[in-house]
Structure formats: C-alpha cells, structure tokens
C-alpha cells in the first residue's frame, strides 16, 4: 500500500516540477505574464510532495536517505528546492527557479531511473562507515547551494550581456537586478564552500579507510578536488583582487560543472555496480 502512495507522490512531485519548468520557461521567453512567484509556489508544492515521498520510502525500505547515491539524488532535489525557497525573497531571485525546477525534476527522475531497479541499495560491508552519511549530506547541501549559485551566475551573464549590448527591453526587464544576482551567487558559494570542504575531507578519509583506488574513484576524487580549488579560487580572487561580476560568474559555472561531473560519475558507478561492491537499487 505504502509503495502505491510513494509512487503517487513521486508522480505528483514530478508533475509539479514539470509545470514549474514549463511556467518559468514561458516567463523567460516572454510568452507568459504570470508572476515568477507562481512558479516558486509550484516548486514548493513539488518539494513538499517529494519530501513526503522521501519519508514514505525511508519507512518502506527502512533506509537512511543519505546512503548510496540514488536515494540521496532525490534528497538533493528537496534540499535544492528548500534552499531556493528560503532565499528567493531575500535576494529577489524568483527567476532562478528556471534552473531549480528542471534540476529538481532531473534529480528526481535520475534517482529512480538511472542505473536503478526497484531493489534496495545494499552496500558492501567493507564500505559501511559512520562517516559516509556525513560525507553525502555535506556534499548534497553544498552542491544544492552551488546549483543556486550556478543559476544566479548564468542569469548574471545573460543580464550583463544584455546591459552591455544595451538591449534593456524584454528579457532584461524580466530578470533580477544585476547586483542582486552577483550578490546571491557569492553568498551561495560562501555558504556551500565549507560544506564542500567538509564533504571532501570526510570523503578523503573514508576512501583511505576502505582503501579505494580504482581509476574511476581517482577520477571522481580529482574532479572533486578541482571543484573545491575552483570555488576556492573564485572566492579568494573576489576577496583579494575584486573579481566579481562576469569573471566570478564564469568561475562559478565552471565549479558547478565539475561538481555535476562528480555526481554523474557516482550515478554511472551505480549503473555499473559490480566493480564497486554495490548492488544497484532504487527506492
């Protein structure tokens, strides 16, 4: 019975994210005069439904939501939406929902369909550690904040391009103020960076404990460190040399790109679990 309820919640959350994606696309294209907060409400609805879905599945599977990668992908979407919803009014970045909604939808769908089945994730005993949930949780929240920074940075670049091109009608009017985007991007990076640092430190420690050393693990770790270095560089250059605006936005986008690569590598590992002692599974 609970499985059906969870499926219904999954479907409803997906539809809410889809509707938000559709609405934000139309707002940005200028084909809808609907206010951006309406899209934010749809994201809130989707996140609420997905939150309940995560709880129901946790109960059904008796699983920790931050173990493995599939289930955390779903949790990531919820964290992303919550972070967005709690910051959107403060920074006047409703339109960043145009990134949040499709990303949340993708994460939700990936959590179910990429490399998955309907079985429970079962980690190899040698990989079990109390550090793992902390590593995953820190990284999830960190990447969620970087995702918001990415959205703000992308919109900043669009807005900045329009302003430099002196095209101050249409899309320019629908996007948030330039400085608000720059400020939001910086704050999201600042908030996400310590979490990423914790995630990487714990990840390194854990990898040593379980003696990981395959090529995929090294590649994943390398991208993780590169992400950290990029974000650290962006923050440092901004503080020390006044790198803001366009340069900071490019750095943020690159950092987010590497973070996403790490996430994708995790997902791919789950799709090919044999080599890593995992059993593919999906809530």
């Amino acid at each position: 019975m609970n499985v059906y309820v969870a499926d219904a919640l999954f479907l409803a959350a997906s539809l809410a994210y889809l509707a938000a994606t559709f609405l934000f696309s139309r707002i940005l294209l200028g084909t809808s005069r609907a206010p951006a907060w309406l899209g934010s409400r749809l994201i809130a609805l989707g996140a609420s439904l997905q939150g309940v879905h995560v709880i129901v599945w946790s109960l059904v599977l008796h699983a920790c939501p931050v173990k493995g990668i599939h289930f955390p992908m779903s949790v990531f979407a919820v964290i992303l939406c919550v972070a967005y919803l709690s910051m959107r009014t403060r920074y006047r970045i409703d339109v960043v929902g145009a990134f949040v909604a499709p990303l949340a939808l993708t994460s939700l769908l990936a959590s179910r369909f990429v490399g998955g089945g309907t079985q429970m994730v079962d980690q190899a005993p040698r990989l079990k550690s109390a550090l793992l949930p902390v590593h995953v949780a820190a990284n999830l929240v960190g990447i969620a904040l970087f995702s918001l920074a990415f959205g703000a940075a992308t919109l900043y670049l669009v807005q900045e391009h329009l302003l430099k091109a002196k095209r101050i009608e249409g899309l320019f009017q629908r996007l948030p103020p330039l400085d608000a985007l720059d400020r939001a991007e910086h704050r999201f990076l600042l908030a996400g960076f310590p979490l990423l640092t914790i995630g990487i430190l714990i990840g390194t420690l854990w990898a040593r404990q379980v003696e990981m050393g395959g090529a995929a693990d090294i590649l994943r770790a390398a991208f993780g460190y590169l992400t950290w270095l990029l974000i650290a560089g962006v923050l440092l250059l901004r503080a020390a040399a006044g790198w803001r605006g366009r340069r900071a936005a490019y750095g943020t986008i690159a950092g987010f790109g590497f973070a996403m690569l790490v996430l994708i590598l995790y997902l791919l590992r789950e799709a090919n679990p044999g080599a890593h002692g995992h059993v593919a599974g999906m809530p």
């Binding site: 006047r92 302003l163 101050i168 320019f172 009017q173 948030p176 103020p177 330039l178 400085d179 608000a180």
Partner: peptide, 8 residues
C-alpha cells in the same frame, strides 16, 4: 529605472 535594474 535602469539604475534599479542594475543595483536593485
């Protein structure tokens, strides 16, 4: 208006 679109 333009200043507000830049600085909020």
């Amino acid at each position: 208006d333009l200043a507000r679109k830049i600085f909020g």
